[in-house]
């Protein structure tokens, strides 16, 4: 009920109330057809931390993110951001989807993709000004892609495309970053760049939540884990919640070869 009271009326750029979690999910259930993809999931994201969402294939990791953002409609449950409804806090949340979902032959350059991250500010009619372009370029240089601004997006390698999408998320200048498999199928250089950018965001006090599938890097990259297999399995700091028991519970027998030293 306290969540409801925190509502602010008609303020164009809502202030984030930092006494609340940037993302609090209660009883969220999503179903494609009649098989629930996630079932009655609760999640409370720790502000200023990096959280990994972990679970086997088909466990509902991406669905959880998409439902949290309203991309898929949940059957039940609620989502609040900094104690306010999601719709009010959109401007403070950035999202990076999985790479495979766009048309790579689309007539758009790298810089145009980054500018899409500012669409909310640009609205329908405002012109793209030098300041917007400069900001987009600085986002590109943070991911080491400033030399590619004029390339058509399909001319890049997979890792480079991934970095451009991260730059688009950065251009939103958000406080909460939700990333769907940012490290999937990228080269080592890209992985290094992306994790450096994410750690930099954390150092600036932002909150990062990422779907992650490489169990061997969880301890190095993240502070907290959220284990899911349709139901929530565990949630908490890596040290206490990323254990053999919780992994066993999330993956069942499917986790034959747990990487050595992954669990600590």
């Amino acid at each position: 009920m306290a969540l409801r009271l925190a509502r602010e009326g008609g303020h164009p750029k809502p202030k984030a109330d930092h006494s609340h979690s940037p993302l609090a999910i209660r009883g969220l259930t999503v179903s494609y057809g009649e098989k629930p993809a996630i079932f009655s999931v609760d999640m409370t994201v720790e502000p200023g931390a990096m959280t990994a969402i972990i679970g086997p294939n088909g466990a509902g990791k991406s669905t959880l993110l998409k439902a949290a953002l309203g991309v898929v409609k949940p059957l039940s449950g609620s989502v609040s951001c900094w104690g306010a409804p999601l719709a009010k806090m959109r401007a403070r949340i950035a999202y990076m989807p999985q790479r495979a979902s766009v048309d790579w032959d689309f007539p758009t350059r790298v810089i145009d993709v980054v500018l899409m991250g500012m669409q909310r500010e640009l609205g329908l009619l405002r012109r793209v000004r030098t300041t917007h372009l400069e900001r987009a370029m600085s986002c590109l240089s943070r991911v080491g892609m400033e030399g590619f601004a004029d390339r058509q997006i399909g001319q890049l390698s997979g890792g480079q495309q991934q970095r451009v999408f991260l730059a688009r998320a950065l251009a939103q200048e958000a406080d909460l970053y939700l990333l769907d498999e940012p490290f999937a199928g990228v080269d080592a250089a890209t992985e290094k760049t992306i994790i450096a950018v994410l750690k930099d965001l954390k150092a600036k006090g932002m909150t990062v939540v990422a779907v992650h599938h490489d169990l061997s890097t969880v301890g190095d990259y993240f502070d907290r884990v959220f284990l899911i297999n349709t139901h929530k399995v565990a949630e908490g700091p890596v040290g206490t919640s990323f254990t053999e028991e919780t992994l066993q519970a999330a993956y069942g027998g499917r986790l034959a070869n747990l990487p050595k030293g992954a669990v600590g």
Partner: peptide
Amino acid sequence: PMAAVAFDPEYVAASG
């Protein structure tokens, strides 16, 4: 908005 939806509808939905 029409170009954004044609390019990446999921991202548009995720940005509200």
